[in-house]
């Protein structure tokens, strides 16, 4: 009995101490970041989200975001090299902060950081991941950005050119570079339905269908594309080629005449 009481008393006292020892990770994040001891800050950040007591707190994620923001924004390349995914982790952290912060206590403090991290992620995907064919990483960024969109309170992400539609298009582009035909078809359908005005969509799908020898689909893409890009010579030229191959002379004459009317001195 005595032992049980002791244990109970111990537990009662230990729990706050246990809890206190977890929240110390949060405090450590703040302190280490302030002191620019980013290695330790990063460890504290990882520890803080590993434990149930702290991982469910908005403050934890806010501080975690600050750690990784400080890392990726540092002028020293040595610091930046501490974590190759610091931009993503910052963005994820700030998003998670808002998810947990139902009363938006941290809104004024974090909203701009969220946008900054989002911009940094987008830049990374466009200037590093995609040019280096790291398509999986690029796509992961787009997912993170999409998750952050609901917290774009002042439309600042929109003014940094991060919108849902653009992300869909970016996914299409990356999947095209990666050669993922199924994804291309799926996303292209969405974009065409949206009437998204990028000629690249239609030109890429046209290429895909021609490679698959699916002329019907190719012509359908051309038809939709010409609605938006009436003077696009890739679409017009390909259409004429198809009609030439099919020996549909009457239709061909009409197509060529239309092309000439659009651009009398075009090469076609």
């Amino acid at each position: 009995m005595k032992i049980k009481i002791h244990l109970a008393v111990l537990a009662i006292f230990a729990m706050p101490m246990y809890y206190k020892s977890q929240s110390i990770n949060v405090q450590n994040m703040i302190n280490y970041t302030r002191n620019k001891d980013f290695e330790k800050a990063r460890s504290a950040a990882d520890a803080a989200i590993a434990h149930a007591e702290t991982k469910g707190k908005a403050k934890t994620w806010k501080c975690r975001g600050e750690v990784f923001k400080a890392i990726y924004a540092d002028t020293s390349s040595r610091i930046r090299a501490l974590d190759s995914k610091s931009e993503e982790k910052a963005l994820e952290a700030f998003t998670q902060c808002f998810i947990l912060d139902k009363e938006l206590i941290y809104k004024d403090e974090v909203k701009n950081w969220l946008v900054q991290a989002a911009s940094a992620c987008l830049r990374k995907s466009e200037s590093y991941y995609v040019p280096n064919s790291m398509y999986t990483e690029a796509l992961a960024i787009y997912n993170l950005l999409e998750n952050a969109l609901p917290y774009d309170f002042d439309q600042a992400m929109k003014r940094s050119n991060i919108t849902k539609e653009k992300l869909v298009y970016n996914r299409f582009k990356v999947n095209t570079y990666a050669g993922d035909k199924n994804q291309m078809k799926q996303i292209a359908e969405t974009l065409m339905r949206m009437g998204y005005k990028e000629a690249f969509i239609y030109e890429s799908m046209l290429k895909l269908y021609l490679a698959e020898k699916d002329t019907a689909s190719a012509l359908s893409v051309i038809e939709k594309g010409k609605d938006l890009f009436e003077s696009n010579m890739v679409l017009i030229g390909t259409e004429i080629d198809i009609y030439l191959a099919r020996k549909k002379t009457q239709d061909l004459i009409v197509k060529v005449q239309n092309a000439i009317e659009l651009a009398p001195d075009n090469d076609i």
């Binding site: 653009k166 990028e198 938006l228 890009f229 696009n232």
Partner: peptide, 10 residues
């Protein structure tokens, strides 16, 4: 090619 912008660019 004709210039087009799919969605607002800021």
């Amino acid at each position: 090619p004709a210039v087009t912008i799919a969605s607002d660019k800021y």
